[in-house]
Design a protein around this nucleic acid. Structure first.
Lengths: 347, 347
DNA sequence: CTGAAAGCGCTTACAG
DNA sequence: CTGAAAGCGCTTACAG
């Protein structure tokens, strides 16, 4: 097979240099804006070059620059689709904080249960300088260590991971979920239901993907009210399913008196489902969510939930760029940003 | 236990070649899997090389390969955050269909009202070979033409754009929205409210961002029932706001008899809000959504909405890869995948 | 069957 | 103030 057929050649700095009658070095200095110590080019030269750029429609070739500079000026946020307010805020801050240093952001949305997706190529092949791995994303610890060893700057939101050339943000989710269960127990609930994410029930042994489920199950057992398997149902992913599953639970014999949903969204649907069946919340059914999204504070009754009190990732995101820009490899660091129990009216 | 920061040099193919006692050409042939016409390397050589790769922890450097190959084997999906089932399905198909040709996908989630975000660097500087620009994303027509002229393969979901070196998928949204308004008029509604996306009210003159609003307003005026400005409110973006705004509309003097929400999500919240005020749907308030998400078919009453009957983007996504892999530049093509009015019970 | 060598498009230390 | 030249890490036509 012959070389990629050049339909129409894309102009390079060499073409710009030729058109402007200067060397490629001059073009590069002008375009990169890095004069370093040298005195600047004359305004006339600069104008000629910029004019040639315009006329030829020149666009920088990233691969050439990245190869030479040994950095891509690009970071990646890895998360599981669909996104959520948490991820939206994270990407926003990654964009904003990185913009000052000339960094752009791309996203790598993964899907359920892809253990080592080919998508990780983007991280493995130095396509980006750094990555933030969002909470609940399935990337192996070994792989993270290898990526870090390969020079990628990595910050991972994970509750059970040792820093190993990368940084870890511990959300202390288990402690907050344990507190929620203890709270429900104190309110007299012994039949607690759980509206799970599909992935939790598909891989109940996976410590990352089933963290919420496991934490709640363990806390319930420890608090003397083990979860009845019949009260653990899927449906937190989609509104209609959350609604239907809740109604099924309530219509069955021996229904739960309290229901925890893996998502605030599902919890709100559960409240709706209960009301439509004529049950009061929290009187007949206490409902709690997980995530502390803004919806939870707006509905009536206010949603009792567990999550971050404020969506502010300045510390870990700043750390990411600090790691990227550091002249030498930084040791792994652990940060903590604990989830909290937020009690409102629904439970 | 402090980490050991190994400021170690990242191994290259040269290192692998040295360790295995072969040339870099051999390493490259083995790793890229492209033997082309040449006969394959001996199993012994291959094993030695792979062993060296393993031992050194070698990882391909993408920039080197991309520079040489003049292609990145990467495509980008551009859309506005937050994502939605539509975008989720699109990314899924871009991933799946591209995998066969060795392509990976990255995402470029934009935010409201960024006219020419620095994020576009990813498209401009040849970070990727191709891009799909999702419906409602704010990228200028000029910029698209320039990107296409620069060799980027682009497929844009847009209803009012001429193909110009890139392909356009026309969803015919305006026609479907006009049909929805006509349908409501036939059912006797003359006071039609609109629950808008924030961005629509912020930039009502923007043809892309306010397409839904404008289409509905124009259709209503043409059908002899111009929208009352007091019945046009924001809130389709967030559940709690959709709920509150709907209740405000219903509590005010001269409330709407029909409400169209810019999102199915907002429409469902509107139904909830109406019920909580003791109004029946569609009796007291007809409610229609936009988007045809799966939630709409699951709730009671079923949601009348407008959108794609099926979430299948095989045709445009296949076209994207066809364009990328074509030996020469393909002319722009227009594709049509029309939205439809889906009548259920809510209106 | 394998290796030496050119070159993709940039950047930058260095010479002029 | 500007240019010639080396080299980043790959791939591949070509020679051996």
């Amino acid at each position: 097979m012959p070389d990629k057929p050049p339909a129409r050649k894309v102009p390079t700095q060499r073409d710009v240099a030729a058109a402007a009658g200067v060397s490629t070095a001059t073009v590069s200095y002008i375009l990169s804006g890095r004069r370093d110590r040298t005195t600047p080019v004359t305004p006339e030269t600069r104008a000629r070059v910029l004019h040639a750029v315009e006329r030829l429609g020149y666009r920088l070739n990233h691969s050439g620059r990245a190869l030479r500079r040994r950095s891509t000026e690009l970071v990646c946020v890895v998360y599981r689709m669909p996104d959520n307010p948490w991820v939206e805020r994270l990407t926003e801050q990654v964009q904003q904080i990185g913009a000052d240093s000339g960094y752009s952001m791309i996203a790598l949305p993964l899907r359920d249960r892809q253990p080592d997706p080919p998508a990780l190529r983007v991280l493995q092949e130095r396509y980006v300088d750094g990555a933030v791995v969002a909470n609940g994303t399935l990337v192996e610890a070994d792989e993270l260590a290898r990526l870090a060893a390969g020079g990628l700057s990595v910050v991972v939101f994970h509750d059970d991971l040792e820093p190993d050339g990368f940084d870890v943000v511990d959300l202390a989710q288990r402690a907050a979920l344990t507190e929620l269960v203890a709270y429900l127990r104190r309110r007299g609930h012994s039949r607690i239901g759980y509206l799970a994410h599909d992935v939790e029930l598909a891989a109940p042994d996976d410590a990352v993907q089933s963290l919420k489920y496991r934490s709640i199950a363990e806390a319930a057992a420890a608090a003397g009210a083990p979860l009845d398997p019949r009260l653990v149902v899927p449906g937190a992913d989609q509104r209609d399913r959350a609604y239907r599953e809740t109604q099924r639970l309530l219509a069955a014999d021996n229904p739960p008196t309290a229901l925890i949903s893996a998502s605030d969204r599902g919890a709100i649907d559960a409240i709706w489902a209960a009301r439509d069946l004529g049950r009061s919340v929290p009187g007949d059914l206490a409902v709690a969510g997980i995530g502390n999204t803004s919806e939870g504070s707006a509905i009536r009754p206010g949603l009792t939930t567990v999550g971050l009190p404020r969506l502010d990732f300045t510390v870990p995101v700043t750390r990411l760029y600090e790691r990227i820009l550091a002249p030498e490899r930084l040791p792994g660091r652990r940060m903590t940003q604990p989830w909290q129990l937020i009690v409102r009216e629904s439970a």
